[in-house]
Structures are given as C-alpha cells and as structure tokens.
Design a binder for these strands. Structure first.
Lengths: 140, 140
DNA sequence: CCAATAGATGAGAAGCTTTTGCATTCAATC
DNA sequence: GATTGAATGCAAAAGCTTCTCATCTATTGG
C-alpha cells in the first residue's frame, strides 16, 4: 500500500503524505494543482496546510512518484507517475486534458536532439486546442 | 520601420513601445523575459516602468508581433514572431535555447488532434536536455 | 498650431502561486 | 517509553505579473 511507496522514497510515513498519496490515487482528475489537493484535503476534513501540500508534492516528484507539468495558465499540475511517458493535449475552452503517446514523435525528438547536440533529459509536448465535446461547446 | 508595425497593431506610437520593439529586434538573445527587457531598457537609460513592459509585451502578443512561451522555471519568455512556427530545445544546465521544426512531428500532432477530437489552436513542444557544448560542460 | 480626448504611462499597491522560517509535534529507533 | 532528527502548520516572505489611479501624451479636428 501507500506506506511502502513513501518509505521507499526515503520519507517518514506521516498522515499528510499518506492522505495526499491516497488522494492522488483515487482522484477523478489525473492532473491536479497543489491548490486542488489542498481543497480536497479540506473537503475530507484533513487539517493539512498548503505549505505541506507543496512540500509533499515536491518530495513526491523528487522521488519519482509524481510528475509536475507546467501548462499555460501559470500554475503547475501534478499527476501520479504511472511509469509510462505521455504527452498532453489541453482544451483551451474547458480545460479538459487528454494524454497520448506517439512513437514517431518520440523518435523524431531523439533524432533532433542528436543533431543539435543535446542529450535529452525530458520533454514536454503540449498541444492546445478546442475539443469538440458537447459539454465544452456549451461553455465556449 | 517599427512605427508602422505598432500602428498596424492598433496601438499608439509611443516611446516605450518603439524602444521595446527595437530592443527585441536587436537583441542577441531571441528569448527574453519581461525582466530582461526591463533591465535592457534601464541599461539604455530609458525610464520605462516594469508594468509598462508587461503591458506592452502583452499587447504585442495579442497583436501577433511576439510569442510568449512558458518554460519550466516558472516565468515567461517572449520572442519576436518571425512568422514561422518552431519548437524549442532547452539546455537544463546552461539555459541555452535552440529552435527546430520537424514536419513529421507537425503532421503527427495534427493526426493525434483529429483522432482525439481537438481542433488545434497552438502547441508547445519543449525538449529539455543537456547540451554537449564545451562552455556548458565547464559550467555543469 | 492649439484644444480636446481617448489612450498610455509610472509608481506603487495588490494578487497569485510557491517557498521559507520557526516553534511545535511526531515517527522512527533503541 | 525516552530520544532525536525529521515533518508540520502557520504566518511571513518571495517571486512574477496585474491592477489602480493620477498624470501625461499621441492623435484628431478645428
């Protein structure tokens, strides 16, 4: 369970860390901001400070448990690292996020980095667009 | 010259706007932050406030004169829009930025958006890595 | 060329997200 | 159960960016 993941990360098993990890695992949204997590904790009657949420998420990121992404609106979102890399497509109207992986793109990136003399550590491909979802149309 | 570009954008031709546009056109770095612009203005004995720099850059962005990018460190950088789209590869050690365009990637993105039901408005592909430049190695 | 006016500016305050300092509390260890 | 270094909560602080508002200016028409 969560305890072990936390322990493996070299962190003490504390209530905030367990709760936050549970939250991430059970959350409907895969991409949540620190603020989102904080609000969910409040809603679950957990008395955990926002500073702790940031600290814990950062530690989780360092431990490779979660990934941090910077979308356009300025603040960061976190998602559980399920091990497999993927990119994102974000709806500019409703904020919906979908994930995808494209081997061709991955290969081309590698090729480009080679040509330009870079050793890739990571990359972030985000496509912004308008999704053609019914619900979205109503909002836009 | 710059005056006309500014006028075409529907903006009054004022000293701050002309100076900022000149700066962007003559700058060695293609990617500058608002703070960078502000410092360059100070260095050129221009008495222009930071708020104005932000306002002007935002207006230039709306007018399509510059593009705004969000790299990982939180703050935004602006670059003159030379009309042709390109992506970025950023060195995590020395901060160097190179640009590239890859038609295959562009096509695949379009295909992915189609499949997922999105109408692309824009995208941001940033590869992070370590460049193999001599100068960079010394720093890292 | 001057007057009128809508828009632009500068300075500082305010807003947001994120980080930090510090006294208190707690998990791990013996 | 006592010890101890790590973790927490709160409030304060720190970036970056936006806003407020009084002052100033580019544009326009007379």
């Amino acid at each position: 369970m969560e305890d072990q993941e936390i322990r493996n990360a070299g962190l003490k098993v504390t209530a905030p860390r367990v709760k936050i990890l549970e939250l991430l695992e059970n959350s409907q949204q895969r991409h949540v901001s620190a603020e989102d997590v904080y609000r969910m904790l409040l809603a679950a009657d957990q008395d955990i400070g926002l500073a702790t949420v940031y600290r814990v998420l950062t530690q989780f990121e360092e431990a490779g448990l979660v990934e941090k992404h910077h979308f356009e609106d300025g603040h960061s979102v976190f998602e559980l690292d399920k091990g497999k890399h993927h990119d994102h497509i974000v709806c500019v109207t409703c904020g919906r996020v979908k994930e995808f992986v494209d081997e061709t793109i991955e290969e081309r990136q590698q090729k480009i980095a080679d040509e330009l003399g870079f050793q890739i550590s990571e990359h972030d491909l985000v496509i912004y667009g308008k999704c053609l979802d019914d619900e979205c149309d109503r909002k836009g």
